[in-house]
Design a protein around this nucleic acid. Structure first.
Lengths: 144, 144
DNA sequence: AAACAAATTTGTAATCATTATAAATTAATA
DNA sequence: TATTAATTTATAATGATTACAAATTTGTTT
């Protein structure tokens, strides 16, 4: 999906975030690539198009978007932070074999968690891990 | 709760893990301290009792226990790995104010996740964040 | 439009948790 | 006791993230 840069800039302005080229491109990238990218991946993909881009800017921008509630941070794996455009709450499944992260619909907000009476819940993350169907099939083939 | 070191050693032996002093003490520590400690905390707490203890050993031992399924790894926060003795699946709530992590009962295994038909699910983690009751009360006081 | 001030970006260096490595120690076996 | 294997330890290396300060860009005022 191609995201309009003008629309994206407007969206930033509405949140009182000055729409610099870097910010607009990074936010548009996040909307086009719903693959939960790491800073590394965002940088590698955008650097050819924005040669001046620095990795520090990607870090700064993601932290800015995080504070503004535009993106969510995923801590599904210990050695890497991933980011996700904010949308209706959903779960994340990481395939241990290919590393891909899948979204799945789940009603996190309605979970009964009686032990948390009196707690203010601001964030709910559901992380599953295992093997995706594609990798499972490949494993069966290997075994033959 | 005081954990028997003999019992703990036996438990390791049964899993074919040689029960060195360090391993036994670390596992006993995990059972006594259900506070989801970091490697740092485990090291700081045990070092006075085992002066020779090295932080590397704590890392090695936790990774060993992890592979053996004795502990779980918590990636609730991006800059720290925490560990938890394995028990019935439960959720984890981290208070943004005091940093404490609370367990709460939740039937993760029964979640309907129809999008994951065909997926093999091995691990399920539920992380909530917000403010615990104690910190909420303190904030109200401050506001007065 | 020019000058100035503020915000943003950038590159480098610093930090910090974790892992790699290899020597030293401890335990197990012959 | 001698030999071998496993474990622990200290130090160095790695790698992701942040701190910092200079350079650049943008916005504002005259």
């Amino acid at each position: 999906m191609k995201i309009s840069l003008e629309e994206t800039a407007k969206e930033l302005s509405e949140r009182n975030i000055r729409p610099s080229i870097q910010r607009v491109r990074i936010l548009a990238y996040m909307k086009e690539n719903l693959c939960h990218p790491t800073v590394e991946k965002i940088y590698n993909d955008l650097h050819p198009e924005i040669p001046s881009l620095s990795k520090t800017t990607v870090y700064n921008t993601l932290n800015l978007f995080l504070a503004a509630g535009l993106v969510r941070m995923l801590n599904i794996e210990e050695n890497e932070i991933r980011y996700d455009i904010v949308m209706k709450t959903h779960g994340h499944f990481k395939c241990e074999s290919c590393g891909e992260i899948f979204n799945f619909r789940i009603n996190i907000d309605d979970f009964p968690a009686d032990d948390l009476n009196g707690f203010t819940i601001k964030d709910r993350d559901v992380y599953f891990k295992g093997v995706c169907p594609k990798c499972r099939k490949e494993k069966v083939k290997e075994a033959e």
